Amino acid sequence: MFVSTAYAQTAAPAAGGDMIVQFLPLILIFVVFYFLLIRPQQKKMKEHKAMLSAIRRGDRVVTGGGIIGVVTKVGADDEVSVEIAENVRVRCLRSTINLVLAKTEPANGKPGDTAAPEEAKTEDAPAAGGVLGKLLGRK
């Protein structure tokens, strides 16, 4: 005869380890994507948000359109006034600022106080060289 007898096989029992082996490549791909793409992007967004919240009057900024200017007024809401040329001011949203080029120095003490920051040092504060300067014998 031309047809041989076919015997049915019983199905293999479903093992839990077999399921993990099947999903292991997908899990590894997700972990790699998290550490190479998602996490750095979240860190960058967090730094940008902190930069935007720290914008003050006098800072040089670059807007989303590439316009470089000096912040003249920071509103309570999401609005910032930027001077892009002499007597030319534009209002823009805080979120459209891409980069802060130069930060202004914070005021030390009272407005009438003209004491230099070096004069405010105490005797036991380390010199400008710090610990490394002391190790190298600098004063």
Rank of each mutant, 00 (worst) to 15 (best):
L24H: 04
L24S: 06
L24G: 03
L24I: 08
L24F: 01
P25E: 11
P25L: 09
P25S: 05
P25C: 07
L26A: 05
L26E: 04
L26C: 05
L26R: 07
L26W: 13
L26Q: 12
L26V: 06
L26F: 08
I27D: 00
I27T: 07
I27M: 05
I27V: 15
I27K: 02
L28P: 00
I29F: 13
I29N: 05
I29Q: 04
I29Y: 09
I29M: 12
I29P: 02
I29T: 14
F30M: 08
V31D: 02
V31S: 04
V31W: 02
V31Q: 01
V31G: 00
V31I: 13
V32A: 15
V32G: 12
V32K: 06
V32M: 11
F33M: 15
F33T: 11
F33Y: 12
F33D: 12
F33Q: 11
F33W: 11
Y34Q: 02
Y34V: 00
Y34C: 00
Y34T: 00
Y34K: 00
Y34M: 05
Y34A: 01
F35Y: 14
F35M: 12
F35L: 12
L36D: 06
L36Y: 06
L36T: 14
L37Y: 04
L37P: 01
I38K: 07
I38M: 09
I38T: 10
I38C: 03
I38A: 10
R39S: 05
P40V: 07
P40T: 01
P40E: 07
Q41L: 10
Q41A: 14
Q41K: 13
Q42F: 13
Q42R: 11
K43S: 05
K43I: 01
K43W: 01
K43V: 02
K44E: 01
K44T: 00
M45Y: 05
M45F: 05
M45E: 10
K46F: 10
K46M: 10
K46A: 10
K46P: 02
K46Q: 14
E47S: 10
E47F: 00
E47M: 07
E47R: 12
H48I: 06
K49R: 03
K49Q: 08
K49E: 09
K49V: 08
K49A: 12
A50H: 03
A50T: 09
A50W: 04
A50R: 06
A50C: 00
A50E: 12
M51V: 04
M51Y: 06
M51L: 13
M51A: 09
L52Q: 11
L52C: 03
L52R: 13
L52I: 00
A54I: 01
I55V: 15
I55P: 06
R56M: 09
R56H: 10
R56G: 10
R56A: 15
R56N: 13
R56W: 01
R56K: 15
R56P: 05
R56T: 11
R57L: 08
R57W: 05
R57Y: 03
R57E: 14
R57A: 03
R57K: 15
D59H: 09
D59L: 07
D59G: 04
R60Q: 15
R60I: 14
R60Y: 14
R60E: 15
V61G: 15
V61H: 14
V61A: 15
V62I: 15
V62L: 15
V62K: 14
T63N: 14
T63Y: 14
G64N: 15
G64T: 14
G65T: 13
G65F: 06
G65C: 02
